[in-house]
């Protein structure tokens, strides 16, 4: 029996924001995470594991342009800066 589920809508155009009555800490002041590359890792694997979305590998690449010249070439023990998910 064929699966006749409707396709899920695309929410990529959703805009979001937030504000608070409390003092807001600028996103740049929030401590950045780091990740040490392991054998077999790729930027998309890391993005999948940290953001839940492999397609966000470019965010990690852009944050590490100083140490990554080619996004297909990362090396074990490299320490990558991981931008905040919503930065």
């Amino acid at each position: 029996m064929a699966d006749i589920r409707k396709p899920m809508p695309d929410f990529s155009d959703v805009q979001s924001g937030s504000s608070s009555t409390a003092r807001e800490t600028p996103k740049s002041a929030v401590q950045e995470q780091t990740y040490t590359v392991k054998k077999g890792d790729s930027l998309s694997k890391i993005a999948k594991s940290l953001y839940g979305d492999a397609s966000r590998w470019r965010r990690i690449f852009e944050a590490n342009r100083d140490i990554i010249k080619d996004p297909d070439l990362i090396y074990p023990d490299q320490v990558l800066k991981i931008p905040n998910e919503n930065a």
């Binding site: 959703v14 979001s16 937030s18 504000s19 608070s20 409390a22 003092r23 996103k27 919503n86």
Partner: peptide, 18 residues
């Protein structure tokens, strides 16, 4: 989305989507 705050007591934070 996330919001980092430094509250000094009771506070209200809003999130919105459109």
């Amino acid at each position: 989305s996330s919001q980092t705050i430094s509250p000094t007591g009771d506070a209200v934070t809003e999130f919105h989507v459109s």
